[in-house]
């Protein structure tokens, strides 16, 4: 069997006997995680970094969500939208607010052609990394993957509690079976003469709105 051949070849090459589990990773191969500043500074850093990669940010107070959505719908000409079905987004009533603005709500469980025709995808944020302006989004039954991928505009609703100091601590929380994706800004390429073009296959625009802490 190829599996056995390859593993045997590995062992022979390394001069090792069969079947030992690897020892722990040496301590020297670890680096300490980044130390966070105070929460306000971290949030400011996150928003600044998101802006650097062509994301658009807004900080919302209690009750401002409806107006903000109205502004977005108009600015980006949103006709169809799809949303995560997480308890949090349901509690915020995002789908109802959009419907009130005349936006057609498409189920995130619809087929991919229908989702690809959506203008807006709305998600939460499971973890945010200020150093690089990165959003971590988990996959799951109530948070279908295409919502943050197919529509041309991605709106991510973020609570300050989601901020984490570094990749390491964030991974420690989410690792295990189950998909997740790290998103840093809208999609881009520099493949043609190194000219940076925003909006290739992933969303062409990324909006990150900070909601008040719960």
């Amino acid at each position: 069997m190829s599996r056995d051949t390859i593993l045997a070849d590995v062992r022979t090459a390394l001069g090792r006997a069969a079947g030992a589990a690897p020892p722990p990773v040496p301590a020297a191969a670890r680096v300490p995680p980044r130390q966070p500043g105070d929460p306000a500074a971290e949030l400011a850093l996150l928003l600044a970094e998101i802006k650097k990669v062509a994301g658009k940010t807004q900080v919302l107070q209690e009750g401002e969500l409806a107006a903000a959505l109205a502004g977005l719908v108009q600015a980006e000409e949103i006709k169809k939208a799809t949303c995560w079905q997480t308890p949090e987004l349901q509690a915020l009533g995002v789908e109802r607010l959009l419907a009130d603005l005349g936006v057609e709500i498409v189920s995130p469980y619809a087929d991919k052609e229908a989702l690809a025709a959506c203008d807006l995808g709305v998600t939460g944020v499971d973890a945010a990394l200020p150093e690089t302006g990165t959003l971590l989004l988990r996959g799951g039954a109530d948070r279908p993957r295409p919502v943050s991928l197919l529509p041309r505009v991605h709106l991510a609703l973020l609570r300050p509690e989601a901020l984490r100091a570094d990749l390491g601590p964030a991974f420690a929380e989410v690792k295990g079976p189950g998909y997740f994706v790290c998103v840093t800004g809208p999609s881009r390429t520099a493949d043609i003469e190194l000219t940076v073009t925003i909006g290739v296959h992933g969303p062409q625009a990324l909006y990150v709105w900070v909601l008040p802490a719960r």
């Binding site: 990394l129 690089t132 302006g133 993957r145 998103v183 840093t184």
Partner: peptide, 15 residues
Amino acid sequence: KMSCYISFITGPRGS
């Protein structure tokens, strides 16, 4: 500092 997308895929979809 970070690429736009980093996907972490563990097996097929969960549901």
